[in-house]
Structures are given as structure tokens and as C-alpha cells.
């Protein structure tokens, strides 16, 4: 089985991420309906669905880039509320990779990676730089450390973004359509880095259309539509035996491109 080489999620009492009855409105538009989700430590979750289904909003609620109005979100034991201390605590443990990379163009690649450790984790500069270089090596672009983001290709920028998030040594990594803004020939290099990351036992939530990645790496695939979780299952079951009509429709659209 494709998942045989992957470390399986650690059985533990406390799940890493918990969403209980989460609801969110934009004005009067109900964008998340009663979301219940539990993610164990080391689990890899792929979330897919048509555009507007709320999948990006869902993971952005987990690191408080969006606020939920009803329900509870608990990350590694800390509940997300309006309390700034809790938000800081959660953000320290959660790393995020964006669709449009969002690298800081006025800082070098190395400075992008060390910004968080130096100013948030209060790491001394030399130590932060050494760690950053090791992560840059993991994403296979250590030689670009002194360059500026504007000088890199899209695929390289996204890998730097992954390294930047990893430098904070998070317990959970969120990916918001990491390859959607990339030219086709660069998608592979980023997916490879994500697969390697999965090998290390990182808890990952990915919103993506890359179904091959889902098959290789995911423990669970979740299908969302119009703000609700319609179906979730192991990848093999999900792709071969979709239960809901909407899931079937979506899969037929996406797997025949």
C-alpha cells in the first residue's frame, strides 16, 4: 500500500487539533456549518472541495487568521479565543504555507527564515541562522540563502516559505493550496518537499487539488462542500468508493483533467 512507509499517527489521548461545532459567518453568509474535526498528532489530512466550500476558511481559523463565531477550536491543548496570549501560543505551534508564498521581499531568504525564531522564540542570531540553513538544506535550496525572494522562481519561493514555517518548529503545518499558483514544472519539487515532511511525522492539514499527493501521503481525505464536511475517509476508500453523490460529482470533475 502506498501508505505503508509512512509513520502512522501516534495514538494518544489528546488530539493535536480539535474543532467542535465550529460555525462562521461573513455578515449574513454562513460559510462554515457545524464543523467537527479531530486531528491526531502525526495525522496527515487532505481537504478538498469545490471553490467556495470553505476549506481555506477552515484551516485559516485554526491559526486565527479568521475568527470563528460559534464553537470551539483547540490546538495542542490551547483553546483559541480572543485572548491574545492564547492566539500567540497557538501561532507558535502552527505553521502556515500560503498559496501566494507571502515571502518578505525586503529580506533575504535567510532573514525570512530567521525572523520568527529571533523575534518570537528569542533565539540568538547564530543559532537561528544555523537552524535556518539546515531547513533550507532540507528543502534543497541552501545556496539561495543570501538571495532575495524576487530573484527566485515560484517553486523556489514556495520551498523557502515551507522552510520559513518549519524554522518555528511547529507541531502542526497548514497548507493552503500550496501549489495552485505554481507553473506545472515546479509543482513536483514542492510536493516532494511536502512528502518528505510527512515522512518525519509532522501533523499536516493540506487544502489542495493534488490528488496524487493525497493518495501518497494522506491518512484521511475530507470533502467539503458549501461549508459542511460531506465525507471523510481513508484515501483508497475515498477515491474508489465515494459514498455521497456530491463527492462522486466532484471526483469525476477533478480526476479527469
Amino acid at each position: 500500500m502506498a501508505n505503508a512507509a509512512m509513520p502512522s499517527p501516534l495514538p494518544s489521548d489528546a488530539p493535536m487539533v480539535q474543532l467542535i461545532g465550529v460555525n462562521k459567518w461573513y455578515g449574513q453568509f454562513h460559510v462554515l456549518h457545524d464543523i467537527d474535526l479531530t486531528v491526531a498528532s502525526g495525522e496527515r489530512i487532505v481537504i478538498c472541495g469545490p471553490s467556495g466550500s470553505g476549506k481555506s476558511t477552515l484551516i485559516r481559523c485554526i491559526n486565527r487568521l479568521e475568527e470563528h463565531q460559534k464553537g470551539r477550536i483547540i490546538v495542542d491543548g490551547t483553546e483559541l479565543t480572543n485572548d491574545l496570549k492564547n492566539i500567540d501560543q497557538v501561532r507558535r505551534e502552527v505553521g502556515m504555507v500560503f498559496q501566494s508564498f507571502n515571502l518578505f521581499p525586503h529580506l533575504t531568504v535567510l532573514e525570512n527564515c530567521t525572523l520568527g525564531p529571533i523575534w518570537v522564540r528569542k533565539t540568538p542570531k547564530a543559532e537561528a541562522e544555523a537552524e535556518a540553513m539546515s531547513y533550507l538544506e532540507r528543502v534543497r535550496i541552501p545556496e539561495q540563502a543570501a538571495k532575495y525572494p524576487g530573484q527566485l522562481s515560484g517553486g523556489q519561493q514556495q520551498r523557502v516559505a515551507i522552510a520559513r514555517a518549519l524554522c518555528m518548529q511547529p507541531k502542526v503545518m497548514l497548507f493552503d493550496e500550496p501549489t495552485s499558483a505554481l507553473d506545472p514544472e515546479m509543482i513536483k519539487e514542492v510536493l516532494e518537499v511536502m512528502v518528505e515532511l510527512a515522512h518525519t511525522g509532522m501533523t499536516m492539514l493540506c487544502v489542495t487539488h493534488e490528488m496524487g499527493f493525497a493518495r501518497t501521503v494522506a491518512n484521511r481525505v475530507i470533502f467539503m462542500d458549501r461549508g459542511r464536511i460531506i465525507e471523510q475517509n481513508e484515501p483508497e476508500e475515498f477515491f474508489n468508493n465515494p459514498r455521497s453523490e456530491r463527492t462522486k460529482l466532484f471526483l469525476s470533475q477533478i480526476l479527469h483533467h
Binding site: 461545532g21 455578515g27 454562513h30 470551539r72 483547540i74
Partner: peptide, 20 residues
């Protein structure tokens, strides 16, 4: 306790007064 039911009120759409 974390998975205990959270809210007593049923989930309803926010009204105009609520929004204002």
C-alpha cells in the same frame, strides 16, 4: 470535557439587529 457539548442555543442565522 473538551468534547462536551458546547452551546445550548441552536445555531441560527444572525438577524439584522444582531448584525447592526
Amino acid at each position: 470535557s473538551e468534547t462536551q457539548a458546547f452551546a445550548e442555543t441552536p445555531v441560527a442565522e444572525p438577524t439584522r439587529v444582531d448584525l447592526t
